[in-house]
Write a protein that binds this DNA or RNA. Sequence first.
RNA 1: GCCGGAGUGGCGGAACUGGCAGACGCGCGGGAUUCAAAAUCCCGUUCUGGCAACAGAGUGUGGGUUCGAUUCCCACCUCCGGCACCA
Length: 1324
Amino acid sequence: MSEQSATVQKRERTGAYDPSVIEPRWQAWWAARGTYRAPNPGEPGFDPARPKFYVLDMFPYPSGAGLHVGHPEGYTATDIVARYKRARGFNVLHPMGWDAFGLPAEQYAIQTGVHPAITTRKAIDTFRRQLQRFGFCYDWSREFATIDPDYYRWTQWIFLKLYNSWFDTGDRQQATGNRQQAAGSGQQAAGSGQQATGSGQQEEAQKHTGTEAHRDEGRGAQTWDGAEGKGRARAIEALVAELESGEREPRINPEAAEHSTADKAQVFGSWSTLDRATKRRIIDSYRLAYLAEQTVNWCPKLGTALANEEVTADGLSERGHFPVFRKPLKQWMLRITAYADRLLDGLNVVDWPESTRIQQTEWIGRSEGAEIEFPLADVGVVQQDGPELRGEAGLRGGAGLRPAAGQPTLRVGSKDSTTEGDGSSMSLHPPSVVADVEVGREPVVRAATFVGRDPYPPGEPSPHDLIAQARRLPHLELEGATYFVTWKTADGLPLSRHERTMALKALGHWDGQRCRVYLANVMSNHVHWIVRPFEGVRLGDLVGSVKKFSAREIHAGRGAQGRLWQEERFDHIIRDERWFTAFTYYVLRNPVVAGVVKKPSEYDHTWVHEEVCAAEGLSLAAGSSENCPTGGRSETCPTTQPCPTTQPCLTTQPCPTLETCPTLENRPTLRVFTTRPDTIFGATYMVVAPEHPLVARVLENPAPETDVQKLRAYVEAARNRGDVERMAGAEKTKTGVFTGVYCINPAVAAESTVAAGSTDPVFAAHPARIPVWTADYVLMGYGTGAIMAVPGQDQRDWDFAEAFDLPIVRTVQPPEGFDGEAYLGDGPAMNSGFLNGLDIDDAKRRIIDWLEERGVGRRRVQYKLRDWLFSRQRYWGEPFPIVFDEAGNHYPVEECHLPVTLPEMADYHPEESDEPRPLLAKASGWARTTAGAAGVRAATDEADVLGLPPDARVSRETNTMPGWAGSCWYYLRYCDPKNPACFSGPEAHQYWMGRGGVDLYIGGSEHAVLHLLYARFWHKVLFDLGCVGTIEPFRKLFHQGLITSYAYQRPDKSLVAVDAVEEVEEGRFIERETGKPVAQVVAKMSKSLKNVVNPDDVIAEYGADTFRMYEMFMGPLEASKPWNPRDVGGLFKLCNRIWRLFIDPDTGEVGETVTTDEPTREALRILHKTIQHVGEDVEHLKFNTAIARLFDFVNALTPMERRPVAVLEPFLRVLAPFAPHLAEELRHRLCAAGLIPDAPAESPSITGLAWPEHDEALAKDDEVEIAVQILGKVKAKIVVSADADEATLERVALADAKVQEQLAGKTVRKVITVRGRLVNIVAG
RNA sequence: GCCGGAGUGGCGGAACUGGCAGACGCGCGGGAUUCAAAAUCCCGUUCUGGCAACAGAGUGUGGGUUCGAUUCCCACCUCCGGCACCA
């Protein structure tokens, strides 16, 4: 201390440059005067005439270790820009604050019991003190930390915005459309949906904020501030209103990742009839914040969940080596996937580094392709009632088809007690396949593919189309539904009139008792039935009962036995009156069209409920056959006609009837996602992930070829491999096991015919029959967890096919001479039937159309992006403003009751527990409360599903938000950090966030993906809700490079710490202990290598100005570069030299060389060059070259005997952004010496002064040296006036003696002249 | 493996849109100042050959386009960052 102050005194006395004195002085002065305070619109001192510039640093986490030299790199850059822009007349917003929640403080609390807030505040104070020592021009009046209740109150508020919003895809019209409709009309529907969305947007924006919309209107920049389309967030009330009005069908959000496809397929009655729980389920499925069960790595010993990186390869915690288990836990998720497309689109309007945009694009991972259904050839394994099939498995339900055990072929069989015994005697039209519905046992077929789309076509299709459509749909059994059911007689045996009457009686038997029968109709060989089972009655039971009863009666009459009715039946839910009418109309009109009767009323085996007869608009006699493509004959397809189905028929014989047509329809299918549907003909096998439900199902119910043991072993191994071998690195060899099951390749099937006379109904030798394998190179989490393997065009598939000797078929013609394996390039399709000759794009279009027409596939976009897991089982984070009632329903805390603050804890030790439990749950006094105390809205009445009675017992959400939460919106709070009424006041927000948001955002590339993606997501939600006015938050983004350090490396590449090495001579280093030579290398700074540079030390030695200039001079801002202590001195020297341009070191006064002379031409030239180049370089963030220009200036001025103040003073204003203390000091000294007038009273600081204007003419050199090349080699130099034209250049160059010499004996062929550059003579 | 970025003196780096490669700094060499040192100022500093004038080579490697290439194209090598069997 005493030694240091002695040095200081000496420096002061001698007038040497001493940053340790001048820097703290000016820092205090700036702080006292509020020099860097940026007033908001409306505040005193705000100048609305100036444009704004918002320059932002990435939110630092104040670690206990304090600042390292990497931090100030970006901060210096933004500081320079902020100062420069201020000098250029901008109102600059340049704030700083703290992303302060974080694990280290909590860990420390666990160890010591010190409240994390205390630890964190201390770290913040250290950081602030360190940052202030750099002289950064932050507006500290705007400082806040994410741990401030005043701040996280609004983080919670935004969470509630997410919670209370849903993503309207704008497909309401499509909701009543059909997924199988032609692509053209589908697009039309989507288009009009978007339009509707767009027009409603502004309106709703106003509605939501309650205040003025934050939207930045009239700025005109469509790309920035316009509506985006592709759907948007809206208030949940709008959803409820749509549901209540009937505008939207009540159903589970089809886009909800947390719901199974079966959930999403459920069709509910009208909104008003639904119970509370169902209404809630539907609403919650739409929220942008939702609860879902997620697997966590739970470590009971640590009482905490661990990130994947914190778990070792052997399933132990990295910390402590305790066992870790995978446990499901209900956690909050944010529906970021809804914004996948918009997050992609936004990347096109921002000025960001290309690499970051690419990283984000890849993270979102959009791939366009097709989803294709591959019918399973062996369907015995797929009982349609299994809960497994409800997941994302992609197994489509059809009628359950079942092979006889041990037989490779399908035969008619039954478990029906009435037909026990010989199944073969029941064969129908061999070799066809008959579906087997196990009536009375488990007839419900879950709809695994009923995803996201309403099954009913738009407009008014013909009844025939409806029926055909219904046939393709999965069967559903739902409480309260009305069904259309139809089945045939076995063998198509005709019924007599008497038998038909009996059947009709049976169909009507339970009317009024167990069901309501709306329509019953018995034809000579089949029945139609429209029925609504009463509550608690199952459709399957009813059908079974009717069949059994009628069969017994009829058989008795005939004296026959066995099966009367076909086991297959079609049932489908009738959802609304339109459909009801259509089905009824179809049933009644069909006999007329078929010519059985003249009009429906003549049909005597029909019974229609009065209600139906009375129904409006049902005109039974109306209609004609013209809109029925098969002339109404599809029900009784005669053998003389081709099969009327749209599916390719695989048998060689004409189908007797539709129901027995062994086409691919109505089989269970394996659904795949592919980006190369054009290669479908080359799909020679299938692969499903080991976790795929099909595999479990096969294990339960093996196919004849299944090697159960091997399969089971593989699945087990794959499960373990998930965690263990992921770390072990890329595993090259492909592994897998054949499941024993086959699929039918629908494209190959359609193009091939089975040889006539084949008796094999499941195409045992057919090329369309392809094996299904399981292998862990297929991931359950992407697509459908199943692929069609196309070895010819996919290297992974190729490798797999090679390994397991599976067929390879090329379907894209590789170029001549191609000797690779899989061919991924473009080329004409081959071996692909109707696709042959088409290039990839055309083939894709063609095949997708083809698939869609047949209902076996569709266009599909897939994303890698997953929803954002938003819950952490930690104490030190933002509490969720959510409570749960005793039934487990969640309720938001009302806005006026925010913030929900963290409770005090007795200690921070997690409880050791097998059950995942967040730490906060220990604060039971806090967690258990009442709805009123927690601030939940009081329920208005019974029907109010979103409120609670105030005295209802509730428990608080005990998870907390993740670290990302607070940093997602901090840039908005800076605009208006103290506003108690709003997250950011509209006026301030509009001003600072106008014109594309943050104008310059600098931070490390480690945040290139997650932080920037999450923040953009929140911003877009807030945009949709009218809370912000730009579609993107950060207009220009820049990543500073890493600051590395030197370390030393032994010949074996191991690193040696800096303090263990000695430099024996220039550039030669040895390891002190061994004396062996080591090489100097660049490495990341790390404690272990002892190469960490502490900024405090550097500042103590050289001062902040030197530090700032060194960091900027090291190299390009974006590059990684090593900290070289030796180089720092060079910048200190620069500061000293600048000092001495002004100050006589002997006297400490302004030197006598500083004059009021008229500047010389030379002095003016260097000044204006400096102004110009530094300005340009700062604009381009090229600070290293800007500082080189400062060197140039000093180099030019140093030798001058007389230095005009008219040149020195503007130079200080150029210097100020880089070395603000030095510039401020010197300017004040010039004032004090009377060499320049005092600065204006309102801004006595150099900070308030304008950037000097440069004069282009003065900056120009009078004469320039021009290189003269002969054949591109410089041979001579000539000096000409700077504006010499081409002719002059050529003349002077050719006249040059040296040139003459070189050209002797040669002919000049051509002379190329570039003004101000060179002359190149082509001679020979 | 894929995607992105980068390879230039002893070192950090510069070179606008294809136009004198090595700005600027560090280090090093020489000189001035000094009793001496530090500091400061001046000169030099890509390599090879030559006392020198000068000559030749040279921007990771190999090829190409061009009057002219660090810059554009093709192939390859090395390093850094990101993703990782994404169908």
